Computed example of a mutant assay.
Amino acid sequence: MINLNGNIVQDSEANLSVLNRGFAYGDSVFETIRVINGKIMFWEDHYFRMMASMRIMRMEIPSSFSPEFLEKEIVSIVEKNDLNEKAARVRFAVYREEGGFYAPATREIAYVMTVVEMKNSFYLLNTEDYEIELFKDHYVGSGLLSTIKSNNRAVNVLGSIYAKENDYHNCLLLNEKKSVVEALNGNLFLVSGSKIKTPPITDGVLNGIIRKQLLEIIKKTEDYELEEASISPFELQKADELFITNIAVGIQPVSKYRKKYFESTVAKNLLSKLNVKARLG
């Protein structure tokens, strides 16, 4: 079942026009949301990021789009798919109503919510081999548009194809200044001793939900020193650990980059703290 503009319909009946602006121009933003036993994880952060994304895209935010209304819509579509007592992944996409060419005929929006089941209710540490490489064919712009989740993800698509063709599990993206920005599907953290480093939003980093949670956790943990600063590709092989974060997997440790193998001690410690925060939040 799919929520199409507030109407619950069968998958086969959830049809979008070929003139849909999300399809035609990438004129769309989205959130990937984790729902556990009917409870939305980190809902407030998702809500405010979606509202910020819509404002950046100059979309007209409906007066009905209150946190309470959208929370109810998300929980409802999870229940309609019989996943209210399981782990679910909801994709909440907002697109501008069709009309116009590059210049839209309207700023009004419509939305669609889809849901799939996830295996685990809480985050588990993946200790299997996880090798990464740099993707250098195209760059991420260090501007505001790179910080939101929009349908304009060509670099991520091409990077994913590159990773698959070369047997990598993931790739790291660079911005036009040749600084490491993030992974194809999440934010990057680098560990050297007690220092944990992650690129700043100003480098073109996606304003990730789990990134935000970890920044708060690390700042409250005396064992670690947090630094938000640009990361050079030369720093990667000098690190003790590298890990990637996103809402689906939580924390994914990197086991190998080129000739360097990495530990996952800090990633494991932070993952346990993240699960505690998720339960309480």
Rank of each mutant, 00 (worst) to 15 (best):
E97W: 01
P199C: 09
H138M: 15
E79K: 15
K136N: 13
K197F: 08
R153P: 03
Y162N: 07
V94G: 02
F23K: 02
L214F: 08
A87G: 10
Y139L: 14
S192N: 13
K195T: 08
L173C: 07
I244S: 03
L16S: 11
E13P: 08
F189A: 04
E31D: 13
N5S: 13
I40M: 05
S194K: 15
G143F: 07
V9N: 04
K238G: 06
L70K: 00
E71T: 02
E85G: 03
R49V: 10
G193C: 13
S179T: 13
S160V: 07
N3F: 00
V94S: 01
L271Y: 00
R34S: 11
Y123C: 10
L134R: 06
I132E: 10
V90D: 00
V18E: 14
D240Y: 05
F69R: 06
E128H: 12
R91G: 00
K149A: 03
N81F: 01
E235V: 08
N120Q: 11
D129S: 14
F48Y: 14
I40R: 00
I218F: 11
T147S: 12
A154E: 10
E98V: 04
K238E: 11
G99H: 04
E79W: 05
M1G: 05
A278D: 07
P199W: 02
I247D: 00
A105N: 12
G250N: 10
D27E: 10
V254N: 05
L83Y: 02
N37H: 14
M118T: 07
G26M: 09
S17C: 12
F262H: 05
L188N: 05
I196L: 11
E68T: 09
K149F: 08
N166H: 15
E71L: 04
L274E: 07
P200Y: 12
E108G: 06
F92Q: 03
A93K: 03
A87N: 07
Q213F: 08
I40S: 01
M50P: 00
N120C: 04
I8R: 03
F243M: 07
I109G: 02
P199F: 02
I132D: 04
V181E: 02
D223T: 10
E176C: 12
A183I: 14
E222N: 15
K212R: 15
I132T: 08
V181H: 03
L158W: 11
V254S: 09
T147N: 15
I209T: 12
K119Y: 09
V249D: 13
Q252C: 14
V157G: 09
Y139F: 13
S53D: 07
V191W: 01
A93P: 01
D240L: 12
D45K: 15
F189H: 05
I148Y: 09
Q252D: 06
L19A: 13
V205C: 13
R96D: 02
V157E: 07
V140I: 15
G193H: 14
A154V: 13
D240F: 07
F101E: 11
A52W: 09
V266W: 00
E128A: 15
K80G: 03
R55M: 11
L16V: 12
I209F: 08
M1D: 00
S160I: 08
D129E: 15
I33P: 00
A88P: 00
F262S: 04
T106D: 06
M54V: 03
R107L: 05
E31L: 12
N5G: 14
T114E: 03
S264V: 01
L173A: 06
L215V: 11
S17F: 12
T265R: 10
A24G: 00
I218Q: 09
I247Y: 01
G143W: 01
D223Y: 07
S255C: 14
